[in-house]
Design a protein around this nucleic acid. Structure first.
Length: 470
DNA sequence: TGAAATGTTGGGGCG
DNA sequence: ACGCCCCAACATTTC
């Protein structure tokens, strides 16, 4: 009796899974496998929070597989070694997986294919609507500016979600292995994780589509409006699910289009759907950028910005990371990151601007800190976002575009709900002072004074960038 | 997917 | 009634 293996990586779902579909359609029983690769979950960019969310997702996958009469094979170790042994034990004739485009994943998958024989390995596109190489200029070059990329992306024919019928292996002769406990993989300090798994992901998508997508364009910058605070959300909060493939990009796209095309959808709803789809395109854009320009992981996209003289100030970085800068909106967001493993996208821009433009500290420090805490931490999107804010990236914001933490706070957290929740020292500060408590006649005790004057910091950063440009 | 500085306009207070 | 000034509101330019 022969079989095929489906190797789950960041595609933890049974519905609309390209490689799993192909494996099921081979007609042979499918052996589902997940491998804990120490290079990932013990690496310096690992996050115990993200691993905890992964574990919860694997538990859900196990129960979904159990309903289909199968288990999930769990292994620990270097994938080449593990897979070689598993192919033999399960008498598998082929290995299926979905392509992953980060430099580490590509080199790992190349080694796997060489070790097992390329003819036995089937890699499918799944993570993105349009894989790298599919969105190019007329001359066949990568598009490095977002708007032309988006225009081309929108023109391409879209793929719809599809779930195959087939059967899983009963795993009779294969040892399944057990999931590790979260604490074995590192200290987890999160207050709570979002519900994991594809059912939870689909429930979140449906809720967002029904209640918030139609007002997305107008409300997306409201940082207090998020499920973590039990508020009607302004953004979808789907990033953790997309990160681990508990939801596919095709499912998200199809749902949004369905809302935009409803007969009763007005101009506001259609504009909101378009704006939200743009966010999905940003995710694709940065995955393509990382694929075509892998040097962005360690250096500026534009080499001229490698000459920037970032300051060295470990104690200032520590204050930022701990949420003790003295700017309430920055501190609320940084504390949310550590406590929940997630941060509103607008808040990410505010704190990233503060680190790179106010403190003039290297974006790589912030990028690593984010990777160590975000449950949605994705190398491509995280890197793209940081380089965008730092002004060193492909389609970066101009160097002179510097966020004012006070005006951003007034705009994105108008009544201070977000600040009061995450910075309890300021809970009793009146609304008029909440965004700039140092202006109070008697500033609140137990909360730091601003670690830097924004106006001075702005001038310093403009000068530093001018120096590099000339 | 900014913010600050600078320029322009027009209403209203006032002599 | 008129001119002058102030300044809010908006527009444009600059970083």
């Amino acid at each position: 009796m022969t079989a095929v293996i489906h190797w789950f990586r960041r595609d933890l779902r049974l519905h609309d899974n390209s490689a799993l579909n192909a494996a099921l359609e081979s007609g042979l029983p499918v052996v589902p496998v997940f491998i804990f690769d120490p290079a990932i979950y013990r690496g310096e960019r690992a996050s115990a929070s993200r691993t905890a969310f992964l574990l919860a997702g694997l538990r859900h996958l196990q129960s979904e597989l159990a309903r289909r009469g199968s288990g999930l094979v769990i292994r620990h170790g270097e994938p080449v070694t593990v897979l070689r042994a598993l192919m033999e034990q399960s008498a598998a004739t082929a290995l299926y997986f979905n392509a992953d485009y980060s430099p580490y994943a590509r080199s790992r998958d190349r080694r796997v294919a060489e070790a097992l024989g390329v003819e036995r390995v089937r890699s499918e596109h799944d993570l993105l609507m349009h894989p790298p190489g599919m969105v190019m200029t007329g001359e066949g070059k990568p598009l490095t500016v977002f708007t032309p990329f988006k225009r081309r992306w929108l023109e391409l024919p879209k793929v719809l979600p599809r779930t195959a019928i087939g059967r899983f292996h009963d795993l009779g002769g294969v040892a399944q292995g057990v999931l590790p406990e979260a604490r074995e993989l590192g200290p987890v300090s999160l207050l709570a994780l979002p519900a994991a798994g594809e059912a939870a992901a689909m429930a979140r998508l449906e809720r967002f589509a029904q209640t918030s997508l139609g007002e997305y364009k107008e409300r997306r910058d409201l940082v207090f409006a998020q499920p973590w605070l039990e508020q009607a959300e302004s953004t979808s909060a789907l990033s953790p699910y997309l990160r681990l493939g508990m939801l596919s990009i095709r499912q998200a796209y199809e749902m949004a289009m369905a809302i935009g095309q409803q007969a009763e959808a007005g101009a506001q709803v259609r504009a909101s759907v378009e704006t939200w789809i743009s966010e999905l395109v940003w995710r694709e854009f940065y995955n393509h950028i990382l694929y075509h320009f892998p040097h962005v992981l360690t250096r500026s996209f534009r080499s001229e910005y490698d000459a920037l003289e970032w300051r060295h100030a470990p104690e200032e970085f520590a204050a930022w990371a701990a949420g003790m800068t003295g700017y309430p909106i920055v501190d609320a967001a940084m504390r949310q990151l550590v406590q929940t493993g997630w941060m509103h996208n607008r808040a990410r821009m505010i704190v990233a601007s503060f680190l790179t433009k106010d403190l003039l500290l290297d974006w790589r420090l912030g990028e690593l800190h984010f990777m160590r805490h975000l449950i949605d931490g994705d190398p491509a999107a995280n890197n793209g976002g940081w380089q965008w804010t730092a002004g060193t990236g492909t389609d970066a914001q101009p160097y002179f575009r510097i966020f004012n933490p006070v005006s951003q706070s007034r705009k994105c957290d108008p009544d201070g709900r977000y600040i009061r929740h995450f910075v309890p020292e300021l809970r009793d500060v009146p609304e008029q002072y909440l965004h700039a408590p140092w202006e109070m006649p008697i500033p609140p005790r137990g909360y730091p004074r601003p670690m830097i004057d924004h106006a001075l910091a702005r001038e310093r950063t403009l000068a530093a960038f001018q120096a590099v440009r000339s």
